[in-house]
Design a protein around this nucleic acid. Structure first.
Length: 426
RNA sequence: GGAGGGGUGGCAGAGCGGUCGAAUGCGCCGGUCUUGAAAACCGGUGGACCGAGAGGUCUCGUGGGUUCGAAUCCCACCCCCUCCGCCA
């Protein structure tokens, strides 16, 4: 959510930011009009309430002294009617204002490349070298089933399209990757591990920005106002919803390994093969809560932390700064980490690290305060550290051998009882 | 799922339907005293919104209702605690 002060005082800045994101700036004109009407109505209703309150006190005094209060009571009755009418109007205005505010995306940071879509994204750096193969590297959707560790057909039987069953070394590899990432972030990067609820309420989803606009992307539990989490960003960022944190305790860095559930509505035909786009997947998520002064340093640090996972796994990747047109709803700035996938002959997103500045903090009422100073909104950041399913894809495709086996990266062997190579399951 | 108890300011804890935004204690801030600190004493201490300001409105879990007037009465919901049932 953007600050009302900002919408009022710098509407042109907001308009041009919306245009950069490829959004229509129309909503802002409507907002300004509604806001003016609201303030007018508010002033009127408040002065009526003042009269009503004074009259009530007078009635109390009159009755206390045994005098007749009928005239005053009659006057209050008339004022109350007008208050009720005005309040109904005010409620309507508040609802319309909130609907607009909750649907306005965050403003891009000045350093974000301007452009309509991903073609305007800027590659910041490349790390590692894509491996060279003496044979035609294959995709994980061929390797996995042949090794007997990924079963797309049975996943589909049990649940449906975009669900997969993992067997043997496949299941263990998923678990090993997650545990390796958690250990790395906890022991080397100073994160606090969190295991949050995998189901959240509506307020949490409003807090991080998935609702009200993106309800179609979520799985909702029938008969309850509960949703499966689309990412641990939601429960972890909302952990401190409504709290004011002492700035001495910032930044806070949390890491959580959770399943994620996404309806993937509207992505029909996209990445239909393999593990890239699933309704259910695991992700190790990084969340930082920071002061406004440090949040961009935190974003750089978070991106480095996510990249470290890929480096330890010996995977080549590049860091991309998303353009204004490609930015997510809540983000002011985002770095995507794209890992090299030989089977697709392309870099594919495996992590997305964003600074949301105070956009989510405003929605989720997350504040901070230094000493006895005034409370202010803190800044929230979130990033994958990294997507586990996609990391598994990257390991299979990058470590495949001519004979169809897959070498296990050194960093994972301690988590796989020393397993060095995945071979077809007997 | 059933029965009961409870949600008041940073914390603890009062609060006959009428100057209650809320006693008191602790904490916190400022001051006096002290070489300094502690103790003691004095004073001040929630937030949001509207307003240029004066000031006003709202806020005692949330939302409704009764009333001229609600922290106090009624209804619904949420959360916490205890017991029973069920369950990993």
């Amino acid at each position: 959510m953007l600050a009302r002060d900002l919408l009022r005082s710098a509407p042109d800045r907001v308009r041009s930011a919306l245009a950069d994101r490829g959004q229509s700036p129309d909503a802002l004109g409507a907002w300004l009009e509604l806001d003016g009407a609201r303030r007018t109505a508010l002033q009127e209703v408040e002065s009526l309430k003042q009269r009503r309150n004074e009259a009530s006190k007078q009635i109390g005094r009159l009755k206390g002294s045994g005098a007749d209060a009928d005239a005053a009571i009659a006057e209050v009755a008339a004022v109350k009617e007008r208050i009720a009418a005005l309040e109904a109007r005010l409620d309507g205005l508040d609802g319309e204002l909130a609907a607009i505010e909750l649907a306005l995306p965050n403003l891009p940071h000045d350093s974000v490349p301007r452009g309509a879509d991903e073609s305007a994204n800027r590659v910041e750096r490349r790390v590692g070298e894509p491996p060279r193969f003496g044979f035609e590297p294959r995709a994980h959707w061929d390797l996995g089933p042949e090794l007997g560790i990924l079963d797309f057909e049975r996943g589909a039987r049990v649940a449906g399209a975009r669900f997969t069953a993992y067997f043997g070394a496949g299941a263990a590899l998923e678990r090993a990757l997650a545990q390796f990432m958690l250990d790395l972030h906890v022991t080397e990067h100073g994160y606090l591990e969190v295991l949050p609820p995998y189901i959240v309420n509506r307020d949490s989803l409003i807090g991080t920005g998935q609702l009200p606009k993106f309800a179609a992307d979520l799985f909702k539990l029938e008969g309850h106002d509960y949703f499966l989490i689309p990412t641990a960003e939601v429960p972890v960022t909302n952990l401190h919803r409504g709290e004011t944190l002492d700035e001495e305790t910032l930044p806070r860095r949390y890491v959580a390994w959770t399943p994620c559930f996404r309806s993937e509505a509207g992505s029909y035909g996209k990445d239909v093969r393999g593990l890239i786009r699933q309704h259910q997947f695991h992700k190790v998520e990084l969340v930082h809560l920071a002061t406004p002064e440090t949040s961009y340093d935190e974003l750089e640090a978070m991106t480095v932390h996510a990249g470290r996972v890929l480096e330890r796994l010996g995977l080549a990747y590049r860091v991309v700064s998303l353009s204004t047109g490609d930015l997510g709803f809540s983000a002011a700035k985002t770095y995507d980490l794209e890992v090299w996938l030989p089977g697709q002959d392309a870099y594919r997103e495996i992590s997305s690290c964003s600074n949301c500045e105070d956009f989510q903090a405003r929605r989720a009422d997350l504040r901070c305060r230094r000493g006895g100073g005034k409370a202010r909104y803190l800044h929230t950041l979130n990033g994958s550290g990294v997507a586990v399913g996609r990391a598994l894809v990257a390991v299979l495709e990058n470590y495949q051998q001519a004979d169809g086996s897959v070498l296990v990266p050194e960093a994972l062997r301690p988590y796989l009882r020393g397993l060095e190579r995945i071979v077809p399951r007997a």
